[in-house]
């Protein structure tokens, strides 16, 4: 990768002005993913260094959610009080690199990848996180699924900056996370599976089953079919869920063996839920 320009704006307005002038500018937060993935060919690149914009490093919280600037380091999130119900996100962060890498890597950089979904994405999707996107026309909040294209691939809009991530802090009663391979290596089989559930009076009240890699697989119809069911689930329910999850992963472009693995994880998660899974 060759760089012909480095901009280091001090404010979001300056950053947006750079993007307006150079829509192809490469936003650079921690840069750990960019450096490990090798960057984008030989064409000269304009780098937009986001590290000096204070609002992108801000952390704030309300009763219902935690709001993180896109350049908040993963290590900072790990160090947040345990009283905050962030287990799905903490578990994902713990899988990213080493402690020293997490001192540089940022949450925004992890979820704004254009080539594949990285480790934190499915956890944030389970937690119904929302993201603020900003471009020359203004800013808007969207569910994190707005970053998933109709074909299941990452669909981060061009000439746009991810500025904040809101993570609801309502606790989940059960959560599971599995990662296969190393997403930063461009491994076609690297994927992350995240599942989360809430219960109310021995009934599933909320359910999320998400697998991501180069594409994202989620079957909302499957989730809705299990919400409202009383525990323990029947063997038939669990087996049908396994099959549906696998089929959904195939439709999303997952290789057959990964799709089968997704189905197995779904079955395993639902089985743990049966046993009290908390």
């Amino acid at each position: 990768m060759r760089v012909d320009e480095v901009s280091a704006p001090q404010t979001m307005a300056e950053a947006v002005a750079v993007l307006k002038r150079r829509p192809d500018a490469l936003p650079w937060a921690g840069g750990t993913l960019i450096l490990t993935s090798g960057g984008a060919g030989d064409a000269p690149v304009s780098v937009l260094d986001l590290g000096r914009i204070p609002e992108l490093r801000a952390v704030s919280r309300s009763d219902r959610y935690l709001e993180l600037g896109a350049c908040v380091r993963l290590a900072t999130i790990q160090a947040l009080p345990r009283s905050l119900s962030l287990q799905p996100l903490r578990d994902a962060i713990g899988l990213v690199g080493t402690a020293t890498v997490r001192n540089m890597a940022t949450l925004g950089g992890n979820i704004a990848s254009r080539d594949a979904f990285m480790t934190c994405f499915p956890s944030l999707a389970c937690m119904d996180a929302t993201v603020e996107l900003r471009d020359a026309s203004g800013s808007r909040w969207s569910g994190i699924h707005a970053l998933v294209g109709g074909d299941g691939r990452p669909a981060f809009p061009a000439a746009t900056l991810l500025t904040r991530i809101r993570v609801p802090t309502a606790p989940w009663d059960a959560f599971a996370l599995h990662r296969l391979g190393e997403p930063t290596k461009g491994d076609a089989f690297a994927s992350t599976f995240a599942a989360a559930a809430r219960f109310e009076k021995e009934t599933i009240s909320e359910l999320r089953l998400i697998a991501s890699g180069r594409t994202l697989a989620r079957d909302r119809a499957l989730e809705l079919s299990l919400i409202g069911k009383r525990l323990p689930l029947t063997v038939k329910d669990v087996e049908e869920a396994r099959e549906a999850a696998g089929e959904r992963a195939i439709e999303a472009g997952f290789p057959a063996r990964l799709a089968e693995r997704f189905g197995a994880y779904v079955m395993s998660f639902l089985a743990s839920v049966q046993e009290g899974g908390r």
């Binding site: 760089v3 480095v6 280091a8 650079w28 921690g30 840069g31 750990t32 450096l35 490990t36 780098v47 260094d49 590290g51 080493t98 402690a99 020293t100 890498v101 001192n103 540089m104």
Partner: peptide, 11 residues
């Protein structure tokens, strides 16, 4: 504490 191999000069 960071990996200096992951720090480009401009950073």
């Amino acid at each position: 504490l960071v990996n200096s191999c992951m720090v480009p000069a401009f950073k």
